[in-house]
Design a protein around this nucleic acid. Structure first.
Length: 103
DNA sequence: GACTTGACTAGAC
DNA sequence: AGTCTAGCCAAGT
């Protein structure tokens, strides 16, 4: 299991209407400083994963997302995420894996 | 096996 | 407050 596979696994588990930061995502797989790599994985990784739920620490949408932030924001809104000025309420929407684990 | 790249983050100017 | 630089880690070439 490579780092990218672990990251993809977590991204795939992010519930609808929730988001995560690259930094936290990296930390969850044991590499708190690998935020850059998380972004890199998103670029050439599995395009079917909800990368739109992965945002930077400011809650801002990914700058390199295909279609631009407009499309990114539209996707998140469709999931029930409140997006203001291309920025999500990271404090409210940040998802914690333990919410789902509950075990 | 070494060098380059990258959808990040935090600190400095 | 906006922009630049440096640090970081793993995958790609």
């Amino acid at each position: 299991m490579t780092f990218s596979q672990e990251v993809e696994a977590i991204v795939a588990k992010i519930p609808r209407g929730r988001v995560m930061t690259y930094g936290q995502l990296a930390a969850l797989v044991g590499r708190p400083r690998a935020a850059r790599q998380v972004g890199g994985i998103a670029h050439f990784g599995n395009p079917k994963l909800p990368w739109q739920r992965v945002v930077n620490k400011q809650g801002g949408l990914a700058k390199g997302f295909p279609g631009g932030r407009e499309e990114h924001a539209a996707m998140l809104r469709d999931e029930g995420v409140v997006v203001n000025n291309h920025t999500v309420n990271i404090a409210e929407l940040l998802w914690r894996p333990d919410e789902q684990e509950q075990k």
